[in-house]
Amino acid sequence: MEIITYAILLMAGTGLVLGVVIGIFAKLFRVVSDPRVDLVVELLPGANCGGCGMAGCADFAKAVVTGEAAPSKCPVSSAEQVSAIAQALGIEAGAAFKQKAVVLCGGDREQTMRLASYNGVADCVSASLVGSGPKGCAYGCLGMGSCARKCPFGAIEMINSLAIIHKELCVGCGSCALVCPRNVIKLVPAEAEVHVYCNSPLKAPAKRQVCKVACIGCRKCQKVAPEKFLIDGFRAIVNYADSALPTQEDVVATGCPTGALLTAEEHLHIEKHDPEWSAEK
């Protein structure tokens, strides 16, 4: 009987002591969190994509509340969502600058020559480490889909070993641009509809040997719209800094001989693209 009494006393006593100690410590060490942070976290999309440059939505919310970042820095939130956050906190939303990613390469399996067959780990970084990749062009898309796997929004599709970005799904967080070992993915203003889909700075003959759709630097596009295109070495690039971006009419007027100058819509169907000039000719 004595033992039972002591046993009950011991267990009850331990439980009581632990309970009281935990209770006291919970009060003593209570972490007071700013309720506004939780509010902002709820208003944010919660994609944790890192497009704002912070570790995740919770970190961004903290920065917004402390005033270190403007709500518009979130590339995923729509204008209404941003203004809702700004309204909840009673601050300025800040100027929004929407960007979208674009893969500056049109060389899918049909268009660009392969130097070798690669059957290692199906990942662009791994592939680029083996003799700088199986592709004939050392600057184009490797087509192993590292960016497509990385994209938190499923905006990248691999068609014929070429990454194609679906503009309506892309929010411009830049995750894909970070993971690409070839730096072929660029963040451009969201309004840009036309791009020069070639990333190779090489001279035209070197490019033509391996790729049907390379930009050969003929300057035809620049003659049509001198303000809208820049010549960088041996290729043309769209002048994204200029407020007047090239349109579809410019593409038609140029009639790019290799088909490197395309609208984003045409790039989606590049496998059907048949330039008048090809590597065999």
Binding site: I3, L10, M11, T14, G15, L18, I22, F25, F29
Partner: peptide, 28 residues
């Protein structure tokens, strides 16, 4: 008085309480 038959029961209780306590303190 030998209460060592309570050993396992008591240890579990103490470990659980201890972890809880450590967690609260660490957070702060």
């Amino acid at each position: 008085i030998d209460l060592s038959f309570l050993q396992v029961l008591l240890f579990i209780l103490i470990i659980a309480g201890l972890v809880q306590l450590i967690e609260i303190m660490l957070q702060k």
